[in-house]
Every structure is written in C-alpha cells, then in structure tokens.
C-alpha cells in the first residue's frame, strides 16, 4: 500500500469562508493530514513549522486569508517576512523549501482548499526524501516532552 505523505495543515480559523469547506477540514481530513487551527497565520511561529518538519511531517501547509483581507487588520503580513526568510534559510541549508507551502485563500475560493491539499500531496510525492532534517526522537510515554 502506498503511504500518503504526511501534511501538517496550519489553518487560519478565518480563511475558509464557506461552511462546507470548513466542515470538511474540521471533520473529513484523511489521517495523513493533521489540522492545526490557529487564530491567524500571523500567529504561526517558525518553531511550529520546524517542529512539524522535525516531527516527521513530509510537508507543511499554511492556509490563510489574503493579506488585505486579514481578520486582524493586516496582521498576517507581520509574520510573513519571517516565514519567507525562514524558508530562504531552509533552502540555503539544503532542505526542500517546496515542502512548506503557503496558500492564501480569497473569500470566494470555495472548494479551493481541497484542491490545494491534493496538489500539495502530489508535489510532496515527487520530492526526494534525501535532505529531510533530522527528526525528533519520540518522547517516552507519559513523560512531558511537549
């Protein structure tokens, strides 16, 4: 059986305008994709991304609102420079930057999240796994490691 790439999906809680899309993301994601809802993409720390990568996720997708339509004024732009530069740095040390993808959803992009995830999944399958960062060792049961 072919294993699907593991995708950590950071979703801004406002970016899915249509209710069915949000429902799908909330309830019907395949097990290979994990939803991490955040209040704004501007809230995502580079450490979150790094941890998803080092935790063994094959890809990280971040879906948020278009900057001019951000729920917190233009807040999601404030972290944008960080994320962009973080990807530059990852690329510099030889990590595939394509494994981290930003998607900006517009209000009228009904159904786009499904397409984007499928597309990302395909893209991840094409990428080689040679340069992935060292993964964290799993914490012993019961011990606080998070």
């Amino acid at each position: 059986m072919e294993t699907k790439p593991k995708i950590a999906l950071f979703q801004c809680q406002w970016c899915l305008y249509s209710e069915p899309d949000q429902y799908w993301v909330d309830h019907n994601l395949p097990p290979s994709i994990r939803l991490m809802k955040v209040s704004c993409t501007g809230r995502i720390n580079t450490l979150h991304i790094l941890n998803a990568i080092q935790g063994g996720a094959d890809g990280v997708m971040i879906s948020g609102c278009r900057p001019e339509k951000c729920h917190f004024k233009e807040g999601n732009l404030s972290a944008l420079r960080q994320h962009e530069e973080f990807l530059n740095l990852l690329d510099y040390i030889g990590y595939e930057r394509d494994r981290v993808r930003f998607v900006w959803l517009d209000l009228q992009d009904r159904g786009r999240i499904q397409q984007e995830l499928a597309d990302f999944e395909n893209k991840l399958q094409e990428l080689s796994t040679a340069n992935t960062l060292a993964t964290r060792i799993n914490a012993p049961e019961g011990e606080v490691h998070v």
Binding site: Q54, L89, L133, A134, I137
Partner: peptide, 28 residues
C-alpha cells in the same frame, strides 16, 4: 523553554540542527 519544549535539549541530531537553525534565524 518548557512547555512546550521547542527542541530536544540533548546533542541528538534533531536537537543540534534545530539549535543551529533557530539560533541563526533569531539573528536575522
């Protein structure tokens, strides 16, 4: 920092890589 523990604090590959990436990144 704890919790959450952002990186492994040992000299494991994951720990040292994370340290070098983030230490540099915090200097941007």
């Amino acid at each position: 920092h704890n919790p959450p523990r952002w990186t492994e604090s040992t000299i494991s590959p994951a720990g040292t890589q994370a340290w070098h990436i983030i230490r540099a990144f915090h200097q941007t």
